[in-house]
Write a protein that binds this DNA or RNA. Sequence first.
DNA 1: ACCAGTTATTAGGACAACCTATTATTTGAA
DNA 2: TTCAAATAATAGGTTGTCCTAATAACTGGT
Lengths: 153, 153
Amino acid sequence: MLSRKAEDYLEAILNIIDEQGYVRVKNVSASLNVKPPSVVEMLKKLDKHGLVRYEKHNGVKLTEKGHEIALAVKDKHNAIKSFLKIIRVPDKIAERDACIIEHGLDPKTITQVKALVEFVETSPVYPDWLKHFETFCETGKHVCEKKDHNRKN
Amino acid sequence: MLSRKAEDYLEAILNIIDEQGYVRVKNVSASLNVKPPSVVEMLKKLDKHGLVRYEKHNGVKLTEKGHEIALAVKDKHNAIKSFLKIIRVPDKIAERDACIIEHGLDPKTITQVKALVEFVETSPVYPDWLKHFETFCETGKHVCEKKDHNRKN
DNA sequence: ACCAGTTATTAGGACAACCTATTATTTGAA
DNA sequence: TTCAAATAATAGGTTGTCCTAATAACTGGT
């Protein structure tokens, strides 16, 4: 099985490729806040596992398998971040926390997070729902206390 | 700062005390799925940090500080688990995933998770909301498509 | 075509958390 | 009370990830 850290590296590599088309050790190093030797070490390991193609001084590429995993991780990341933003966690924190959470979660959990995000976002009353949630966060009270007892969704 | 693992141990110790009033190495070992030597090692470390009082062959107790931290971790755990259950993650998975998630999250994120849980649970239309979410999970459709456009929450 | 500055790699260690095998201590049943 | 079984502690290793310091390889401006 793949370690959390390995997944972090794959995701970072994918993001860097998407941004600038190629990957250098220093990019990964900066992106994950580790020193270059740590990156090189991990690249060797990922290469050994067939997840990247790594040639010294000559760049890194994701293999098909590595790409697949990186995409899966990123997908989780996005689901979690969307959720965090819906519940009004500030962007910067949402980004950081998504990184923390995204590993090791059961696929079922991710499925349900995604479902929640979609449920809320596609709801016919979406803007209201959000407004009400925000009001609740501020005041601790529901906008419609009594009268709305039979309202839907 | 305290490592994630250290927090896991503190939380486990708290839970075991709550269940049976005292803690033995083997309980912690079973609870965290590690071998006894790992427990002893960590107990020494926690003792050194003033989070537990540990005497060989003579039990473990949380210090005030350790107790405080353990409670905080447990509180996070509960918030996350409540949320997971609301979005219909099966109980067993929710429990496991809460353990995975509970560390390192920003306090703001936890606050918002709690807010969501409370918002939904105390909503005047709580049972409906859940039913609608479940229907959405199954069918991908909102119960009330057009007609309810101005409904609240 | 050179070499200074940048980037990458290697060598060698630190550290946290875990393990197995061994040894010591405690405890309860005969 | 004794001693066998249960429990706990120690000794010594392994693994994964990170680091610093030293070395090597690349690259662009002259």
